[in-house]
Amino acid sequence: MKLRFSRKTLGIPYAVFLVCFVIIPMLVIVFYAFTDDEMHFSFVNFVKFFSDPTKLSTIVYSLVIALLSTAITLVIAYPVAYILARSKMQKKYVLLLLFVTPMWINFVLRVNALREILAWAGMLGEANYFNTILGMVCDFLPFMILPLYTTISKIDPSLYEASADLGGNGFTTFTRVTVPLSMPGILSGVTMVFLPSMTNYVVSDMLGNSKVTIIGKFIETYFGTDWHMGSMIALILLVIVLASTLLTGGFQSENNARGANL
């Protein structure tokens, strides 16, 4: 007797996982978002959200905080990934490891440590928004470095040579060869940093002393008292992220992903 697996069978565990932990919860969220306390269908939460300046302001602030965090992370991570990927250094794996090891340390511990450093520097409680963004950058940097490193290191070196042969200087080669070819890595990194920066309220609570409120904190607070509003905010956030992913072409990168997806 021989058990035979087709490739499709191998997908079953994931399909089960997907249905149980992604699709069903998502449907529950949609259900809660569009019902009121009596579980009747209603747009009341939708209207409430978009007619409250505070909630709108908060989501705008979150967007700005997340954009800034993502931009800064990218600016820091790109050169690092570029140098690491292109250097012929013997010890570059050690260096890469140094950038990635923080991911293995408990997140709360890292934020707490950063809080102590900020308190020591006298910045805790003084610059809440700056601290929050700093916390996000520190926290998500590895998520940006890794995909960038993978894509850049997979660019065929002969392309650089070709660029040089055609008269491109270092800068031209960088802007016309390296950057376009590492686009999948950039998109992958941006997606992985942007969404958590909008929802990771532990950072804004600990480093912004809860005086900075990002939209994730609202979701958390509402889930204590009003699941319907909490679900609605979660859904709105989902739509925003989905839209931005569509616009940046995150779904089209499969053809030339070059291992950017972790």
């Binding site: 300046p53 505070t54 302001s57 904190k217 609202f218």
Partner: peptide, 24 residues
Amino acid sequence: DERINELWTQIKGETLDAWAIAVI
């Protein structure tokens, strides 16, 4: 209860002027 919880949203949330929201 709901009124008090809403008060908390207003305290904790960020505030932007209406024109700023519109511009953004």
